[in-house]
């Protein structure tokens, strides 16, 4: 379980998250929606310990333990995973090398080459990626869809317990989105305790990966929480917060 308590985060003297609270129980899928610049991606990066963001106050607790003092790699080893919106490309480092090193680091021993290749081949097949992509430099020359598939490939290999998907549906065509979503669902089915935090602007992904909770973020705070219907309301009305909040208060459907 991940608990974020009264988290206030600053970057370049601007408060991005303001006494932010969120609890994500094991096995649950939460979605955060909101217009650009309200702190959605900041939240994921703070959880992953991006040092560009300064935590002023509050705490992040994962499985009953504060992770604020842990480094990025220590958090990753605890099972926290961030699929990035714009993953960087790393020239000269192949996907296979990268993943094998990451796995060796996670288990603190050299990984058996045969079992690694088998696992990698299976994951590549599931994602309908060309086999040669694992021998190419990480994300170099990848299309938008290939980059997102590559993030999911890493997720499948590293087997995290808490997954953050930051706009995994942006820059992805319809077929690739379905493949990505199918793989996320399959992973969740096989790992019932895995919890998920999805950052998105649209309901495209949510049509396939059904959320338990949808939160609307504004000015660094959650201003409304609902279920999948709230995402549909936003899809129909945009981020017209007054309307969303008033409609929710009146118990009516804003799309009407």
């Amino acid at each position: 379980m991940l608990e974020i308590k009264d988290l206030t985060v600053k970057v370049e003297n601007k408060i991005i998250l303001d006494k932010f609270n969120l609890t994500i129980e094991d096995g649950k899928t939460h979605v955060i929606m909101g217009p650009n610049g309200v702190g959605k991606s900041t939240l994921t990066k703070v959880i992953m310990c991006d040092l560009n963001y300064k935590i002023i106050s509050g705490d992040i607790i994962y499985n009953n333990e504060s992770i604020l003092n842990l480094t990025t790699d220590q958090r990753a080893k605890k099972g926290i995973f961030l699929a990035m919106q714009n993953p960087p490309y790393i020239d000269g480092v192949t996907n296979a090398d990268f993943l094998r090193t990451a796995l060796s680091s996670k288990y603190e021993k050299n990984i058996n080459l045969y079992s690694f290749i088998k696992k990698l081949d299976d994951a590549v097949d599931d994602l309908k990626m060309p086999e040669e992509m694992v021998h190419r430099s990480v994300n170099k020359g990848f299309s938008g869809g290939e980059k997102k598939k590559n993030e999911i490939l890493q997720m499948k290999i590293l087997e995290p317990t808490f997954i953050m998907l930051d706009e995994i549906d942006s820059g992805v065509d319809v077929d690739a989105l379905k493949i990505v979503a199918d793989n996320i669902n399959k992973y969740k089915e096989n790992n019932k305790d895995v919890s998920c935090l999805i950052i998105t602007h649209y309901t495209h992904l949510l049509n396939y990966v059904k959320p338990d909770y949808v939160h609307v973020l504004k000015d660094g705070k959650v201003i409304k929480t609902g279920d999948y219907k709230l995402a549909l309301q936003i899809e129909n009305n945009g981020f017209n917060f007054d309307k969303v909040v008033i409609d929710a208060f009146n118990g009516s459907d804003a799309s009407e």
């Binding site: 990025t72 990753a76 080893k77 990035m84 960087p88 790393i90 990268f98 090193t101 990451a102």
Partner: peptide
């Protein structure tokens, strides 16, 4: 950061 976010 990217590499470290995968556990390295």
């Amino acid at each position: 950061f990217y590499l470290m976010s995968r556990g390295l």
